[in-house]
Nucleic acid binder design. Structure first.
Lengths: 271, 271
DNA sequence: TAGTGGTCTAGACCACGGC
DNA sequence: CCGTGGTCTAGACCACTAT
């Protein structure tokens, strides 16, 4: 009975999700699938490709065949604190000893700003903006690395021209605070994104693994006077990293709580 | 001059990133590419498929061809607060009026627990665990929706058997707090994940868009006595949602800061 | 060296939707 | 209607690596 690539992929996916095929187990090969389902080799291959695109399978190469991927269960946790040592600011103990990875996408350049960064900077998308891009990582565990692109607001580059060159000890943040004589504030926005081939290579991402993306907004001043000076676009493996924080009880959620009084059948998103 | 699918894709990707091709613009069609690069139609198609897998392009169907995808620049922001109204707990104003989407993946079941959820629950992966799964969303803006799977620790199901059935007003959290006579605490861990076809369909995800995944851990008691009772696996579009929080200055980062004193050439991850 | 997956060519046929 | 992309078959050839 002939089948489609989607159906073959669905069968294999079910077996993996049920645990009948464990990480490291070998999946049926292209030839085997083609025979078993009476389809062409290309169709069988397409089924396996779908599983790889989902991060469920991988083909290490050679005569190893295609196997169920081992996915990491523990992640490197980023906190929402900013700290400081003799080198300057850093965000939490997990990245304190990280260093720049030489020869990887280092760049100081002027580039058209992407739409979502432009939105946060409060400027028109496509404007040419000063960009400092680099790759950082743990020297001892090189799989833990991140790509960071700093987009500076045109106004701050005018006020602090050194940003366009070597910024020296403490980096851009120290130069901006020295100029402003007041502290920076930061806010982070976490989203997910699909890597392009360059990002996948730099971050050592296997096929099917998305990126965790942090947009960090640095600003001077408070409230309506706040002035965004830099947006940092930080990308890392979505499988190896996470951001963790406690939920805070607010308003009526403060303990002790009142019993609920609503209509059962209109109940919303509670489990 | 014949080329490869990767090269053709790289050319088109560059044009999109440079802004030469704007969202909504039509990409060269399969036939055109095949001719221009002297390759087979299949090879040209493969190049376009790569761009779709990255979320850069889409083929609406019919005679529209393949176009550059419009990507949303503003996102629905989730806060790290938990609030309460007459229906029970909810996490922030953005989801207060959300309701269950009927007929979508609703389930109360006992299933083998995935490895990373098992890790957080402190039990063996693959153990059969009570699961309540549902889809929630904004009734007025149906593109904003999420999938939520609650995995309950076997011990709490023994203590609060009603969790296996209809939990009534306020949901599982109210039942657990009534039984324990003490407040739950929550911690959230944010990561990224690739959708499987079922998740992509439920969440209306176009190809190439990953999920933002929140693992919410609910526990009773503090410190070493803490007892994890539920892990909620919440998945949503990585393009339409974000989590936002301020960074807190800690330790030496408290203002006013001391100048940095390190060796310039060993400087770490500062921009 | 043998068996695995990867890529490309070539061609048939189908589904969709704007014209 | 007809041009677009989507899927499948068929076969050639290459690259890698465990045996």
């Amino acid at each position: 009975m002939p089948s489609t690539a989607d159906e073959i992929a669905a069968n294999l996916r079910t077996q993996i999700q049920r645990g009948e095929l464990q990480p490291g187990d070998r999946l049926p090969g292209i030839e085997t699938l083609a025979e078993r389902y009476s389809v062409n080799r290309q169709t069988a291959r397409q089924a396996l490709n779908q599983l790889k695109a989902e991060g469920l399978a991988e083909s290490p190469g050679g005569r190893a065949g295609t196997i169920v991927r081992q996915r990491p269960t523990t992640r490197l946790v980023r906190s929402r604190n900013i700290e400081r040592d003799h080198l300057g600011y850093y965000s939490g103990p997990t990245v304190q000893h990280w260093r720049t990875i030489q020869g990887l996408g280092l760049a100081i350049d002027t580039r058209p700003v992407p739409a979502d960064v432009a939105e946060l900077l409060g400027i028109t998308p496509g404007t040419l903006v000063l960009l400092r891009e680099r790759a950082n990582g743990d020297p001892e565990q090189p799989q833990y690395r991140q790509l960071a692109a700093s987009w500076f607001h045109p106004d701050i580059v005018e006020d602090v021209p050194v940003l366009a060159g070597g910024t020296g000890l403490g980096g851009s943040y120290d130069r901006i605070e020295e100029w402003a004589q007041q502290p920076l504030q930061w806010e982070e926005e976490v989203t997910a994104a699909t890597p392009n081939p360059a990002e996948a290579e730099t971050l050592l991402l296997p096929p099917g693994v998305p990126m965790l993306r942090i947009l960090r907004v640095a600003s001077l001043g408070r409230g309506s006077k706040a002035r965004v000076v830099e947006v940092q676009d930080i990308r890392m493996s979505g499988e190896l990293f996470s951001v963790r924080y406690p939920l805070q009880r607010r308003g009526a959620a403060r303990w002790p709580v009142q019993p609920s009084t609503g209509d059962y059948y209109s109940a919303g998103s509670q489990p």
